[in-house]
Design a protein around this nucleic acid. Sequence first.
DNA 1: TGTACATTGCGTCATATTAACACATAGCAT
DNA 2: ATGCTATGTGTTAATATGACGCAATGTACA
Lengths: 251, 251
Amino acid sequence: MLKTHLKNSKEYQPGLSIDCVIFGFDDNQLKVLLIKTGYDDSWSLPGGFVSIDEDIDTAAVSILQSRTGLTGIFLRQFATFGKVKRNQDHFSSDSLAYFGIPLEEEKWYKSRFVTIGYYALVNFSKAIPQADNPGEMVEWIDHHEVPELILDHREILDKALETLRTELNLMPVGYNLLPEKFTIPELQKLYETILGRTLDRRNFLRKITSIGILTKLDEKKSNVAHKAPNLYSFDKDKYEEVLKNGLTQGW
Amino acid sequence: MLKTHLKNSKEYQPGLSIDCVIFGFDDNQLKVLLIKTGYDDSWSLPGGFVSIDEDIDTAAVSILQSRTGLTGIFLRQFATFGKVKRNQDHFSSDSLAYFGIPLEEEKWYKSRFVTIGYYALVNFSKAIPQADNPGEMVEWIDHHEVPELILDHREILDKALETLRTELNLMPVGYNLLPEKFTIPELQKLYETILGRTLDRRNFLRKITSIGILTKLDEKKSNVAHKAPNLYSFDKDKYEEVLKNGLTQGW
DNA sequence: TGTACATTGCGTCATATTAACACATAGCAT
DNA sequence: ATGCTATGTGTTAATATGACGCAATGTACA
């Protein structure tokens, strides 16, 4: 959660942080990028502070970039969390010392923080998880197997997934999560994983193709068991257009 | 925008404010509660600060209560606005003097603020617009005739309406905006006003009744020109249930 | 080599939902 | 009485959805 090269707290917007729920899709699993601190092995969402001269959206992009190496990613603000006691008693003096925080900065870290939640959809294979502190671990974890998280990060994660599910009814998803070439069954698995329920193969094909955002390639997936499925790619222009105008119906 | 009985700035969460877009429905118009300061006649959304020991949701409820006298109202957080320069140069030293802000507090008011947007749906006839400062005006204004607003309040208002339109597809609306007894044409007008387009009378009736949240009363509207329309009320239990589970289709 | 099996691709059909419209009724105005 | 306007109810065609059937393709293995 904390980042190195920390500036003096005066350079940050006081009492404000950003937490990112970064989703990736791999091995038919929806995964979330989580961070384990070296201090006490507690897990958290990647997050950070907002510089005093930085837009909040820019700060979110910057956190995402520093953790995945990626830019130009689908990133959306979904909620702000501001219960008084959400970060009460989180940082002990011991932990702050561990992170190399000077004594005079302790008060700042122990003060009340409001956090803005962003969720991102990233191409799993292109992301390079990046630790920030020595001893820190950054890992992709199946969203079904997320361990206990610090603070209200579990609530933030749940809300992000809930938002993603709702927005699946309003926009197409996949361009950001899948490789350039993919099969319809893979896309279906993605939808099923996000929604948490199965969909009928044949109805899915009909519906997803009728949106008009897919280009059928003259190529089949190789090295697969059973019948080789056709490869598709997204028609970026039409995809963007539908993203902007919204879908008319949901799943 | 500012409130009297201001506490010392140290009692507030620094750099954080809340702005409320309060919608009401009257005379077939969707209206927004706006505030005109006595200082320079500029218009703004009702807003306020967050006490250091107050949840953000509680702060929003409190602003709503102080401006309308209402509690237990539909209130939803929809976005947080945090561009660096969003409140740059807003408060002149003159204006702060006008509002009775001591000199030593000036810096606080001129610092960067991030604001959390909430929108509310309230029963127009039950709300009692309440001024907070002498010289201040609080008025319901048709959302089509909103004057120029301070800061990024126009953007906040637009985003609130956009969110409301989207959420109309996910939940029923009306319980919070209409009187206890109402007619189907009135409810339709509400939907049309929010959506900004007309709907077919007969299709609307079929769809809205099929949701199962309406109770047809054995009573007709009186004192109307032309044929007297039937009165309806909401079935609160079923309404709440649908609010929680969501609608399956939209408009 | 050929048979079983899992998966994909394409199609069908009954039902539900939506959009567009016709017509009768109620109440006011003249 | 007659016209005007808005309400209440019904009809129909087009479209979308949900639940399947079945053939084709490629692997595994007897």
